[in-house]
């Protein structure tokens, strides 16, 4: 179960996600981000209420990061401790723009 709330502020789009970003919900997140990429210069994904991220969720972030790297930024904000650990363990903290 994942709730995605999208807020657009000019060229900046904020996604607030709540719940679990796993194999079942990753396609939904991927679709939401993919629709936004052509029009947004800055995408922020707010992880404040995210409980869990699986490798499928990480794949969505990696994909979005690669797509945004050519002329935009992707930032993950409000990352809690367990998810920070996941980012660190998988090495994604070195690729993704977190904070």
């Amino acid at each position: 179960m994942l709730n995605i709330t999208k807020t657009v502020e000019g060229e900046k789009t904020v996604f607030s996600v709540e719940g679990r970003l796993d194999t079942n919900t990753a396609p939904e997140m991927e679709k939401a981000i993919r629709e936004t990429i052509p029009e947004a210069r800055e995408i922020v994904i707010d992880f404040e209420k995210l409980d869990y991220i699986s490798s499928a969720g990480l794949r969505v972030l990696l994909s979005a990061h690669k797509a945004m790297s050519s002329g935009g930024t992707l930032r993950i904000s409000n990352v809690n401790q367990p998810i920070t650990e996941i980012f660190e363990v998988t090495g994604f903290s070195e690729i993704l723009n977190i904070g």
Partner: peptide, 9 residues
């Protein structure tokens, strides 16, 4: 020590 997942970059 951790590196990035293989295939990511």
């Amino acid at each position: 020590k951790h590196g990035i997942a293989v295939g990511a970059m």
